[in-house]
């Protein structure tokens, strides 16, 4: 199974995302933002970083990169797609996921190990977890506050489309402590914290993040 990892100018976490995909037993394929070619991959990860310098709004320019047109088409056709941090911002700007990520409510850039509760294990990226399971993975961003209007929030809650919430104090002012959401089909997931930085205890605080990558392998093998 081949997982594409996109590199935009300013992407930081593509290496770790590729390493996590490899660690989970898939083959990681590098995708370049300016190539309208998915190289036959079965799933795609949009990794974290500061694509296009976060100019205009986080993810606003990346969303129109040539590779994104192909990714949007493929995701609408059911291909598993995970956006982490800046990748989550790109997914919202691309309208593959609702809402938007805005400046953390206390304005600080946060970088710490964050406890999350998994609240939906029916997606392509979360099936390795159990509902209610608590995991600890790094959170590092300046614009991670998930915002949307009341109607969208009610829909996300009602349809069980919130896949993870922050445990304890709300770190960034996200509505309903939302850390990650999915689309109705469950193939597209956006997550603000970084599972790819927590796949083994040699390099991360825990190995709790690996489940996102083993989940997609299960989804693809099925």
């Amino acid at each position: 199974m081949k997982i594409g990892v996109v590199t935009f100018p300013g992407t930081l976490d593509d290496r770790d995302a590729a390493r996590a995909a490899t660690h989970a037993g898939t083959m990681a394929i590098s995708l370049w933002h300016n190539d309208a070619d998915l190289k036959g991959v079965d799933a795609v990860i949009l990794p974290g970083g500061f694509s296009y310098g976060d100019y205009l709004r986080c993810g606003a320019i990346s969303r129109f990169a040539p590779v994104m047109e192909k990714i949007i088409d493929a995701a609408n056709g059911g291909m598993p797609l995970l956006g982490i941090c800046n990748g989550f911002q790109v997914l919202c700007e691309a309208h593959l996921l609702p809402g938007a990520l805005t400046r953390n409510h206390e304005l600080h850039f946060l970088c710490r190990d964050q406890k999350l509760e998994i609240t939906n294990n029916q997606t392509a990226w979360t099936s390795s977890y159990s509902v209610g399971q608590e995991i600890v993975i790094p959170l590092k961003n300046g614009e991670g506050s998930f915002q949307c209007d009341d109607a969208i929030l009610a829909a996300l809650e009602g349809e069980g489309r919130i896949i993870a919430r922050y445990v304890g104090k709300n770190p960034n002012g996200s509505r309903n402590k939302i850390a990650g959401i999915t689309n109705a089909r469950g193939n597209v997931v956006g997550l603000m914290p970084h599972p790819e930085h927590a796949i083994d205890t040699l390099t991360g605080p825990t190995a709790d993040g690996l489940g996102f990558f083993t989940s997609v392998l299960k989804a693809l093998v099925k």
Binding site: T102, R103, H105, E106, L107, S145, Q147, G173
Partner: peptide
């Protein structure tokens, strides 16, 4: 401009 209902932490600062 941010919509009125969206928190503007920069404006608050």
């Amino acid at each position: 401009m941010l919509k009125p209902e969206i928190l503007d932490p920069q404006g608050v600062a």
